[in-house]
Simulated scan of single mutants.
Amino acid sequence: MITIIGSLNFDLVTTAKRIPEGGETVGATNFATFHGGKGANEARAARRLSPSDVKVKMVGLVGDDTFGNELRAGLEKEGVDVSQVNYSDKRTGIATILVDAEGENRILVYPGANGDFSIDKVSEDLWAESEFVLLQNEIPLESTLEILKQAAKTVKTVYNPSPILDVPNSAYENVDYLIVNAIEAGIIAHNDGNSVQTQNDAEKVLDSLLDLGVRTAVVVTLGSHGAVYASKEGSERGFVSAAKVKHVVDTTGAGDTFLAGFISQVHQGKPLEESLQFATKASAIVVSREGAAASMPTLEEVLSS
C-alpha cells in the first residue's frame, strides 16, 4: 500500500494575463475551483498512476464544512482509502492560486485543519499496512519529522520538503527517497550561497544531499530541463530529460504528479531511470491542462503517450 500523509486544500484558481502588482487591480480571464493540497494531489495521482491492485490511502484532516466534505468524497470516488481523513474543529485548508498567461502560478495557502495534524492522528496499524509513506511540508513540521522517524523503522519513506522549511539535517536519516526541486536542493545542501540552476549544478549537489543520511536515493527536479538522480550505493546515477510540452497551461500539481508517478513505478520495482521517465511524462500531461486534480492523467494515458 502507498500511504500519503499530508494536506488537503480546496483550491480557488484565478487566471489573468498578468499578476497584479501591489495596490493594483487587474481583470481576470477565468475563475475555477479544484480539489488540491499537496497530500491530496499526491494521493489522487498515485491512485490514477498505479495498477488497480495497488491500494492508496490518504491520511489527513479537513474541516466539517462543504469544502472538506467535497474533498473527502472526491478522493473516495477516485478509489483512495479515506478512512483516516478525519475532521478538525478548524475550517478546511484553502489555497488561493493566481495563474498568469504563461502558466506560472503564485499560491497563498491558509492551512486551516491541516495545521492541527499530529502523529496521534495516525493509527498504530498504518505502518504494518504500508510499503511506502509519502510526506511533504504542509502539515506542522514537528508532526512530519516525528512521522518520518516512526515510519522509517518499518516502511520506505518518501519526503518532498515543500514548501521549504528549516529542517534539521538529522531528519534526512529517516528518508529513503528525497525528492526536491532546484531551489530546495540548493538550500538543503547549503550550496555556499550558489543557486542550483543547471543540470551540472544539480549533479554537484547530489552527493551533498546523500551525505545528509538519505537511505536510498535523491532526485533533483529541474522543471522543463528534466531531473538528475543518484542512489545511495552508487549503482544508479544520471539525468532524465523532461518530456516535451507544446503549450503550458497551468503548472499547478505538476510536482505532486511527478512525485506520485515516480513512486508508483518504484513501488513496482522499476529502476530509478525508468521510474523518472514515467514521472516526466505524467507531469508533462498535467501542465498542458488546467487545474491540479482535474489535469492528472491515468496510468493508461501515460503509457500511451
Results as ranks from 00 to 15, higher is better:
L141S: 08
D120Y: 12
Q150G: 06
A151Y: 00
L148K: 12
T157M: 10
I139S: 06
T154A: 13
L165K: 14
K153R: 14
I119R: 02
D125L: 01
N137W: 00
A151I: 05
N137L: 04
L134M: 15
V122G: 00
N137D: 03
I119P: 01
K156S: 02
N169R: 15
P163A: 04
E131Y: 11
L148T: 10
I164D: 04
L165F: 01
V122F: 05
E131P: 02
V133R: 04
E173Y: 13
I164N: 10
W127V: 14
T157L: 09
D120L: 05
E146W: 09
V167E: 02
V133M: 06
L165M: 14
K121Q: 14
D120A: 09
E142C: 01
Y159V: 00
S143T: 04
P161E: 07
S143Q: 08
Q136N: 09
E146C: 10
K121F: 15
S118G: 06
L126V: 05
I119C: 04
Q150C: 09
N137K: 03
Y159P: 01
Y172C: 12
T154F: 03
L145D: 12
K153Q: 15
K156N: 07
A152P: 11
F132G: 00
S170L: 11
V158A: 01
S130Q: 08
Y172T: 03
T154N: 09
K121S: 07
L145H: 15
K156V: 00
T144Q: 12
P140E: 04
